[in-house]
Design a protein around this nucleic acid. Structure first.
Ligand code: SF4
Ligand code: SF4
Lengths: 144, 144
DNA sequence: CTAATTGAGATAAAATTTGTCTTATATTTT
DNA sequence: AAAATATAAGACAAATTTTATCTCAATTAG
């Protein structure tokens, strides 16, 4: 029940990129250093982000990565799902046929509700929110 | 970002127990059969539940498990944390010293908020809620 | 053309998950 | 009392996922 280190790195890497002037080409080495993360691992993470279309990659000297979408359109949910795969609290919440008990399972509906709440929360944050150096609570309903 | 099969089995095993008359001794074999779960796996899960004090175990013929707490006092969060370990969305949410970036990390506060929301939701359900055959939404704020 | 710098992709170690199999314990039957 | 039986306890192990590293390929500057 947690996000992976890879997703944490990816989010902070993208936030770092978003703080640079729009359109700037960023190097993995630089991103990794400024986010305190292993460069070789970050490299593979950005490969995945590039494959997903979220960022664009340029190979060779003076290569690097640029955004392929506006940071304000990239939600935390998107990043986590690209890196960790779909968010599925319990197998039955996205694919009913994945569990033969779903028809007479009392617990099923709880997972549906919590899944909905969680994905809604993760979708309510974008990369741009953090690049603007806003701090503190941005999900009022979470703490009242 | 999901609960383990073990936690799913544990919850439904306890719900099955809660449907029986209070104080009844239940066998793993029976619990496993009625929850469509591997008996030997369920056995190890109930070992853990017993070690935590949630249920009581009796060895030998006519042995089995009984509740050691009232089903209405056993929250889903408790069960998941006993089986899967503490719920920690990201390492920084329960132990600030686990991440050297926490002081100047913009994303930290988001995880704090979502963690709080998630644990609150998981604490709002008890085993008894599902044993009563109540179905449907029990977390109004999740779907409005 | 060569060297330097970058991302791409193959490989692998470590940890976690998901189980099974054997052993110990208590009860019931003979 | 001994043997058979039913149960939980715990050791063991396969499979998967996570967390990386290491080597290769592509591009460009000089
Ligand atoms: S909660 Fe119920 S429906 Fe969902 S996976 Fe578990 S048993 Fe199946
Ligand atoms: S979100 Fe920030 S503080 Fe939390 S683990 Fe990641 S880097 Fe550390």
């Amino acid at each position: 029940m947690n996000i992976s280190r890879a997703s944490d790195y990816a989010i902070r890497g993208l936030v770092y990129m978003a703080k640079k002037p729009a359109g700037a080409v960023c190097f993995v080495k630089d991103i990794a250093k400024n986010t305190n993360s292993p460069a070789s691992f970050m490299s593979k993470i950005f490969q995945t982000l590039a494959k997903s279309g979220l960022v664009h990659s340029f190979i060779g000297t003076k290569g690097g990565f640029t955004f392929n979408a506006r940071p304000e359109d990239i939600t935390i949910k998107m990043v986590v799902e690209i890196i960790d795969g779909p968010i599925v609290l319990n197998r039955c919440v996205v694919n009913k046929s994945s569990c033969r008990n779903v028809g007479n399972c009392d617990v099923h509906f709880m997972w549906l509700d919590i899944q909905k709440m969680l994905t809604k929360a993760l979708s309510s944050y974008s990369i741009a929110d953090f690049a603007a150096d806003k701090k503190g609570n941005m999900l009022p309903e979470a703490v009242q």
